[in-house]
């Protein structure tokens, strides 16, 4: 199952770096270019690279579809709850954590947490779509 040894080796080398770059882009979305969407797509792309190189059966134990679905729901719930917390400080979507020093993790206040939520949601969404295509193909080829 999977591709040749060269592709597997390159994928093993590339996946941690790509995933780390995605997490960096998510966490620094309010300081540098990027944000939840771009970083989330990068994280999902690194996982998809792993699945493409090693085949669906070898990575199924660690990152299966149910975990991705839970992460997707978690991202949306996190976004909602951060937005709802604003109600205690005035209004829905109130930015109650903001500080006026630039290039700091909390310099954008709530924006960092929205970014993390969007990043989790987008990466899980792309990965779920990809893996359900694979599973559907497997189910249709085995018959039943």
């Amino acid at each position: 199952m999977g591709m040749t040894a060269i592709v597997k080796r390159i994928a093993m080398l590339m996946t941690p770096a790509t995933c780390l770059l995605g997490v960096y882009i998510i966490l620094h979305g309010h300081v540098t270019p990027g944000g939840g969407f771009a970083g989330g797509i990068l994280v999902a792309g690194s996982l998809i690279l792993l699945v493409l190189a090693f085949g669906i059966s070898s990575v199924k134990q660690e990152i299966n579809q149910n975990n991705a679905k839970i992460a997707l729901s978690l991202g949306l719930i996190l976004f909602w709850s951060v937005a709802f917390m604003g109600l205690f400080h005035g209004s829905f979507f109130q930015n109650y954590l903001k500080s006026h020093s630039a290039s700091h993790f909390l310099s954008g206040g709530n924006i960092a947490f929205y970014d993390i939520a969007i990043g989790i949601g987008v990466s899980a969404a792309l990965f779920t779509i990809f893996i359900s295509f694979l599973i559907a193909k497997k189910e249709s080829s085995t018959g039943s």
Binding site: G29, G34, G35, L76, K98, S107, G108, G109, G121
Partner: peptide, 27 residues
């Protein structure tokens, strides 16, 4: 907003409801 990247500030602060709707559409 305090965020030095204005694009993210617009997406997640000024137009927060848009992004909420977008995340819901994705879900």
């Amino acid at each position: 907003t305090g965020a030095s990247n204005l694009v993210t500030a617009v997406i997640l602060d000024f137009r927060g409801y848009d992004t909420l709707g977008e995340a819901t559409v994705l879900f």
